[in-house]
Design a protein around this nucleic acid. Structure first.
Lengths: 227, 227
DNA sequence: CGATTAAACTAGACATTGTCAAGATGTTCC
DNA sequence: GGAACATCTTGACAATGTCTAGTTTAATCG
């Protein structure tokens, strides 16, 4: 990284200028020369990320895998941070998907507490299985982040379900609870990713171990506050 | 990073070959040509880290600041990961210092819960004030990490104090509690560092905001489980 | 005390990376 | 058909990590 000087996103912010009327062939803003190179580059990047980790993720390597010249990505992402942000947005969506999936896999009669736990375990599972993506999922201020994200809304709903006597409280009143639970899950996932518990897990895969230990850790949060 | 091939720490692991009898001048293994270049490089690295963040930290920049040639660091750290690990070890020690300091600043009559909270706030404060160092504090399997670290021992002591009825329990019985609390603090610190709450903090500095919000979040953990 | 050995460091080279500028190629629209 | 434009290529440049070989300096030992 040669120039870390001040800030020169010069060619950065211009994603989809216009998408005027056009009943034409490909779906969204499809192919010019290549066929939606932007998506292809992101896909390539995710493969690299899974293969060589975050350290091996390079603009040029992505271009290579996509079969284009090394300068091509610049027009779509401007900067390498642009690419990282794009992957991050995709990753955030996938993370949310995983949580929703864990939630959907619960038996229909499951308690609210069990469903709350499930979303947490989904978060942890995604982090451990896709470490690279997970690291990039928290970038920029894309609208899907922090408060306002679907994940946060799900957390809020689960919490209200779980504590009936708080169901009607204003949001600020249970925000601390939400933040605390978010912190536990995020922190635990991070610690696992840093290999902090690798000494304790025997023959179990990191993923399985994260699930069983994660469940134990999250159990510590019960009984729900003030219940 | 050219070669991510397999693993070639060739000149890596040889820190202090021998330190035979020698009542001579400088303290530990002091100066050969430069005067403990190793320490000077680490110091320079920490300055760079504070000035330009983790992205601006380079072997060559450190060498420049220390006034040595660009190849010099290799003999002390072998790899750039060697330097990062060295800084990480230093950072871990400083993090522990900060927690101990927060603990020491408590009034002598403070409750066990308040002291437990204080160590957590110390953790958070260090993370926010020295983001770069904090990121590197969790690397490798240096003996000061994870279970077995002084911080972990402190946490255990505070927990036993806080829950008298658990004071005599075997360690495994309260390990989940320790992990959970570690996760909250670590997770919250990480979220703050990622700028996740920057929209909510008004004019407060990130550091101050982390303290007040951190306190609120950690309050949610009381009353202590099963108490 | 002088020679040898080894450590600490220098200097040069190389491959790789991010970024920029300029040009070539195809698409869209009037 | 031709202008305007987005897309992509090519070539260049500075900067970085790492390797190799050489140079300087300290420690050791006969």
């Amino acid at each position: 990284m040669p120039s870390l000087r001040v800030a020169k996103p010069i060619v950065a912010a211009k994603r989809r200028p216009r998408r005027a009327a056009k009943p034409a062939p490909a779906p969204p803003p499809a192919a010019y020369h290549h066929g939606d190179l932007r998506a292809a580059l992101i896909a390539a990047a995710e493969v690299v990320l899974a293969e060589r980790g975050i350290e091996g993720l390079t603009l040029r390597e992505c271009a290579r895998r996509a079969g284009v010249s090394h300068g091509a990505p610049a027009h779509h992402f401007g900067d390498i941070n642009g690419l990282l942000d794009a992957i991050g947005a995709h990753a955030a969506a996938k993370l949310d998907e995983r949580m929703a999936q864990f939630l959907a896999n619960m038996p229909s009669g499951a308690s609210a507490a069990a469903r709350l736990m499930a979303t947490g375990l989904g978060y942890i599972d995604f982090a451990v299985e896709h470490a690279g993506l997970f690291c990039l999922a928290h970038r920029g201020n894309g609208e899907g982040k922090g408060a306002g994200s679907p994940a946060f809304a799900r957390l809020e709903a689960a919490l209200r379900e779980n504590m009936p006597h708080l169901a009607t409280l204003p949001r600020e009143a249970l925000l601390p609870q939400m933040l605390m639970r978010w912190s536990v899950v995020h922190g635990f996932a991070t610690l696992v990713l840093e290999g902090r518990f690798d000494a304790q897990r025997g023959t179990l895969s990191r993923r399985d171990f994260a699930q069983v230990l994660g469940r134990v850790v999250l159990e510590q949060l019960r009984p729900p506050v003030f219940a």
